[in-house]
Computed example of a mutant assay.
Amino acid sequence: MMNLHRTVPLILAFLLIMTACAPQQSATPSSGLVIMAATSLSECMKTFESEYQKTNPDMRLSFSFAPSQQLAQQILHGATVDLFLSADDKSIQALVEKGMITPENSGQFIANRLLVIANPHSPVVRLLDLSKPGVKIALASEESPAGKYTRQLLDKLTVQGNLGENYKEKVLQNVVSYEGTVRSVVTKVELGEADAGIVYQSDVYPSSIGKVRQILIPDSLNITAVYYYGILNTTPRQEEARKFMELLLSEKGQNIFQGCGFLPIQ
């Protein structure tokens, strides 16, 4: 005769094991929209994530921030991504040329301007001071979009700014540090490890007020940095990526960007 005292516990144990092995229903989606974005967008994207999920509560957003040229290389080497937000056109075009993004799934979405910042205790109070001997300057690395915009600015200041024909050369001679991100340039100046730096205006957060002196560049001499987006051809979430871009390009989205220090696209 079967021993029920032994059999019942065995049956219960078997059922517990089967329950544990069965697929579980999760309250959160198993996958979401994967977005790679330029480092300078990191703070503003927190607001956009909150806004997007008000109308798309079931779609999780996953962000990865780094310099645009690094992100483009990651995508070229097989990184899984749905949407790429770049600080320049070149990084997007590299993917268009490889057939990874189609022109109709890319375009401009926001702009930025450059700004000179200086440590409050440094001798830099005007643009000309960047070229004086002994001044310590931090800049974004030359291969980054910010670094390229910076060199365009120095070329323009040299030709049109009445700052001396060797202005760019003198400024570059004063560089003590090339940083991977613009935010790192801000930190160097805040800490006094550099007297001054050239950054995006959006990277001077409210937390930097009092830590850096802002030296404005005349609009006629400044460089406009235009940001571009690209929706990857391989993404199964084309519609979700388009909805996110609709938010960024909407009047509300452009106002959010302006609150973060960016400029609306013309």
Rank of each mutant, 00 (worst) to 15 (best):
M1D: 10
N3A: 08
H5L: 00
L10K: 09
L12A: 02
F14W: 12
L15N: 08
I17N: 02
M18S: 15
T19A: 11
T19Q: 05
P23V: 12
Q24H: 08
S26D: 08
T28V: 13
S30M: 07
S31R: 12
V34D: 09
E43Q: 12
C44W: 13
K46Y: 14
K46Q: 06
T47R: 03
E49A: 07
E51N: 02
E51S: 00
M59I: 15
L61I: 14
L61N: 04
F63C: 02
F63Q: 03
S64I: 13
S64A: 14
A66C: 01
A66E: 13
S68Y: 09
Q70T: 15
Q70F: 12
L71I: 15
A72C: 08
Q74S: 09
G78I: 07
A79L: 00
A79D: 06
L83S: 07
L83P: 04
F84W: 00
L85A: 02
S86Y: 12
D88R: 00
D88N: 03
K90C: 08
S91P: 01
V96T: 13
I101S: 00
I101A: 00
N105E: 08
N105W: 13
R113M: 10
L115W: 08
V116D: 09
A118Q: 09
H121R: 10
V124M: 03
R126S: 08
K132T: 15
K132R: 11
V135I: 11
K136D: 10
E142I: 12
E143I: 13
A146K: 04
K148I: 14
L154S: 03
Q160G: 00
L163N: 01
G164L: 12
G164D: 06
N166D: 15
K168H: 10
E169P: 04
E169T: 15
K170W: 04
Q173V: 05
Q173G: 14
V175N: 01
V175A: 00
S177N: 05
S177M: 11
S177P: 02
E179M: 08
E179K: 06
S184C: 06
L191S: 08
A194Y: 14
A194S: 11
D195H: 12
A196F: 15
A196R: 06
Q201A: 10
Q201C: 04
V204P: 07
V204N: 00
P206E: 09
S208G: 00
G210H: 09
V212F: 11
R213Y: 15
Q214W: 10
P218C: 04
D219A: 09
S220L: 08
N222H: 14
V226P: 05
I231L: 01
I231C: 01
T234K: 05
T235G: 03
R237I: 11
Q238R: 09
A241H: 01
A241F: 11
R242Y: 14
M245G: 09
M245D: 14
E246S: 07
E251F: 10
E251T: 15
Q254I: 06
I256N: 03
F257I: 11
F257P: 04
Q258G: 08
C260Y: 14
F262A: 03
F262S: 03
L263E: 09
I265H: 02
